[in-house]
């Protein structure tokens, strides 16, 4: 988001900073608390998978749609997963319709990187005929309400939608004809990555910033962890800077919280 779009009065900025220095937040959370999380899945019948996730007042809907396509030449036996994001104008006064903005592109890329680098989807199992036909999984993020930390909410929604998505079973005949069967099977999900975003404020690190805290922050870092506790993706965002020691302490906090958040994901 361009700086000129962020409007926060000086008095609010000072209030938020002072609270954080005392270990408090404007919504009465502690520094490493997430807001309330609700996850609903299979909300869109026509999609292969879908999820509606709220994180406090932030709300994100994700749809999973599968299509058959040709594989990339360098990965002839692997399917493709792509994540894109749309920030609808109803979500925030800062979003406008039109081509994707920097915020939208960054959101999609950070979430995409988490899914890709954790190898959450076993793409080899999405291959139908090697070198010819594979499943392409389109994961679309729609932000419906932006009250901060769209990244973590979207990452949760994407994994919830993928975990509950169903794909049609296919049969290939001898002359390489593909037949779609009525029967559906779950997507081959083999890892459950979790993204945790921390914002830096007045030297302190706070988990899951709300919108006002995002306006007041001096930069943020998003860590994505695999279910084995390894780091699989990382992105620093915003105009601020971090000392190496701040990165490491944020990393430790995020690593502790990730398993707690993973429990919210559907089976």
């Amino acid at each position: 988001m361009v700086k000129s779009e962020r409007i926060l009065s000086e008095i609010e900025q000072n209030y938020i900073e002072k609270l954080v220095n005392k270990g408090n937040r404007i919504d009465e959370r502690s520094l490493d608390d997430f807001r309330e999380i609700t996850i609903k899945t299979n909300i869109i019948e026509k999609a292969n998978g879908s999820a509606d996730v709220t994180l406090g007042n932030t709300r994100v809907v994700v749809g999973v749609k599968m299509e058959m396509g040709t594989p990339y030449p360098d990965m002839p036996d692997e399917g493709v997963v792509t994540v894109s994001a749309e920030l609808a104008p109803i979500a925030s006064p800062f979003f406008e319709s039109g081509p994707p903005t920097e915020v939208g592109i960054e959101l999609a890329r950070v979430v995409d990187r988490g899914v890709r680098q954790s190898h959450a989807v076993d793409t080899k199992k999405l291959c139908i005929i090697e070198g010819e036909k594979v499943w392409i999984v389109f994961v679309d993020i729609y932000a419906l309400d932006h009250d901060g930390n769209l990244i973590d909410a979207s990452a949760l929604a994407v994994m919830s939608a993928l975990l509950t998505a169903k794909m049609p079973k296919v049969e290939t005949t001898k002359d390489n004809k593909i037949k779609l069967l009525e029967e559906t099977i779950p997507l081959p999900i083999v890892n459950r990555p979790i993204a945790i975003t921390l914002a830096k404020m007045n030297g302190a690190m706070i988990v899951d910033p709300c919108l006002k805290e995002e306006f007041a922050m001096n930069g943020r870092i998003t860590f994505t962890f695999t279910q084995d506790g390894d780091l699989c993706a990382l992105q620093k965002g915003g105009d601020g800077t971090f000392k190496p020691s701040e990165v490491l302490s944020a990393f430790e906090t995020a690593r502790k919280i990730a398993p707690q958040l993973r429990q919210f994901l559907p089976e």
């Binding site: 990187r113 890709r116 680098q117 870092i221 695999t226 506790g229 390894d230 780091l231 699989c232 993706a233 990382l234 992105q235 620093k236 800077t241 971090f242 000392k243 190496p244 990165v247 490491l248 990393f251 430790e252 690593r255």
Partner: peptide, 20 residues
């Protein structure tokens, strides 16, 4: 001079020790 990190990204797989 100020020992500040202004760009930090990562993809792949690191254990906590490897990351540091």
């Amino acid at each position: 001079r100020t020992e500040e990190i202004t760009l930090l990204q990562m993809d792949g797989s690191f254990s906590p020790e490897e990351f540091e």
